[in-house]
Design a protein around this nucleic acid. Structure first.
Lengths: 141, 141
DNA sequence: GTCAGTGCAAACCCTTTGCAGAAAG
DNA sequence: CTTTCTGCAAAGGGTTTGCACTGAC
């Protein structure tokens, strides 16, 4: 498939730009991430990757996602202790989470933003701002 | 100690008001939580509780903290997948987290608030708004 | 006696670690 | 050859589950 090989090239470039050696396993994982282009859990990545012809271990998926997050290729979102997902959208935005359905949506900063950041101590700088709006269904009945 | 037994009474009342049967284990855990009156992890609760004369199992600590959070006695904060803490301050406020030192501070809403909430779908209502400002040290040296 | 409520040992499973093997120099 | 990097099996440990026990009726 043409687009598949294009994606492969794009991902290779992304990895090189981030100083990551584009090995077979990392490429497979990267393609799965950016192909889906949505919030995705480590488990889902593992399943997607192994649906293809190549075997990648669980440990490698976790370590690679951690590496990608550290280098800024993806953003790690901690929704609950048991729900950690990776977001390929690394631009400045926030999230809306439905605790009943598990649905997770992006909120762009024009829909939601802080009026001001707090005064910080000298010696520290912003590393990130995470905002999660949790909603629930009105009539659980 | 006088204040200790007063705290015990207060916690008992809190539990009853929330429809929770104030058993020995729940009281011990509740006293540890509200005595410390700060962000505290399940592990720390376990240690504090068992410093006293009564033995409470790990499972009971986890289940009880989950119950308290569900009933609104404490607020569960997910900082990272490996750092979950319970906050006895259940009023509307947010958090400042230093990723280098692990330090966690409260931010009152007058220091930090959203200019507006997003338009929600019909059928859903706000369950909670979590804002975490992550900071890091400027000179990791 | 029954039955809802409670506490915890053990199981579960997500994540990390340590190391064998590969790749680079 | 030595050194660095990589992938993964196995270990670790926080959390949940299933069940024995208690207490209420």
């Amino acid at each position: 498939m043409e687009t598949r090989s294009q994606l492969r090239e794009q991902v290779t470039r992304k990895l090189l730009d981030s100083g990551i050696n584009p090995t077979r396993q990392r490429l497979e994982i990267g393609v799965c991430l950016f192909e889906k282009d949505k919030h995705i859990s480590a488990d889902q990545v593992l399943e997607l990757v192994n649906r293809g012809a190549c075997e990648v271990s669980k440990a490698t998926v976790y370590n690679t996602l951690g590496l990608f997050a550290e280098r800024g290729l993806v953003r790690e979102l901690v929704i609950t202790p048991n729900k950690v997902v990776y977001d390929t959208n690394v631009s400045d935005h926030h999230h809306l989470y439905n605790v009943d359905t598990g649905d997770l949506q992006d909120l762009e900063t024009d829909e939601l933003h802080l009026n001001a950041l707090p005064r910080l101590d000298d010696g520290v700088q912003i590393d990130g701002v995470d905002i999660i709006i949790r909603v629930k269904n009105k009539t659980p009945a």
